[in-house]
């Protein structure tokens, strides 16, 4: 599984195939309604491990040595925290700074670092996001209410079945003495895709 042919798709795990087999049989026989099933799965998409990614980000914020390992070999550094992709995909973490903003997309389909971010949101899979993120990233980011100054360079990273990206957002001001756990609670999925920044906590908040 570690060496995929770029021309074809990776065959998912046996467990994934069993679920797909069951689901497709039951839908075809009319025993379960496809739309109702999809709606329920969508409802859970944010429940699949988004906190894994948040923990990775929080650790990088408090531990400079970890951050360096994360930027050098993300697959191994994320593995240190016990998270890994069952499909054997390779992870790359890209760091946001005051001068550089990173955005991830999969222009071909919906490759997504789900072992750290969960299932992709519906908009990530939309053809509008997939095509426009590359052509007009600033416009797309404005639609997410993120207006970047002209001095900020925007870098767009196109994911593949073998290579998945995760954005390391900037640590917000006012969190200098925060615990790793409290920091992880601030990190959002959208910030790790690059369509948002991690919001600064309200003034006076402590953790």
């Amino acid at each position: 599984m570690s060496h995929h042919d770029h021309e074809h798709q990776a065959v998912p795990s046996d467990l994934t195939l069993r679920v797909k087999a069951l689901e497709s049989l039951l839908v075809e026989k009319g025993l379960v309604d496809r739309a109702a099933l999809d709606a329920l799965v969508d409802n859970y998409e944010h429940k699949v491990g988004p906190r894994n990614g948040a923990r990775v980000v929080a650790r990088a914020w408090v531990d400079p040595a970890y951050k360096q390992r994360l930027l050098e070999d993300a697959t191994a550094a994320i593995g240190e925290l016990g998270y890994g992709g069952a499909q054997g995909e390779h992870m790359v973490v890209v760091e946001n700074t005051p001068a550089v903003h990173n955005l991830i997309v999969c222009t071909l389909c919906s490759c997504y670092p789900w072992s750290v971010l969960g299932l992709p949101p519906v908009w990530y899979k939309s053809s509008a996001y997939r095509s426009r993120s590359v052509i007009d990233p600033r416009g797309v980011l404005r639609e997410f209410r993120l207006d970047l100054g002209a001095g900020v360079e925007v870098r767009v990273w196109d994911s593949t079945a073998e290579l998945r990206y995760l954005v390391l957002p900037e640590r917000p001001a006012g969190t200098e003495n925060w615990s790793e756990e409290a920091l992880a609670a601030l990190v959002t999925r959208d910030a790790m895709v690059g369509v948002a920044k991690v919001p600064a906590p309200p003034k006076g908040a402590t953790a």
């Binding site: 998912p12 795990s13 467990l15 994934t16 679920v19 797909k20 689901e23 799965v41 859970y44 998409e45 429940k47 699949v48 491990g49 069952a86 789900w114 072992s115 299932l119």
Partner: peptide, 8 residues
């Protein structure tokens, strides 16, 4: 859930 198939 830990993986998408589990939610499915």
């Amino acid at each position: 859930f830990a993986e998408p198939w589990q939610a499915q």
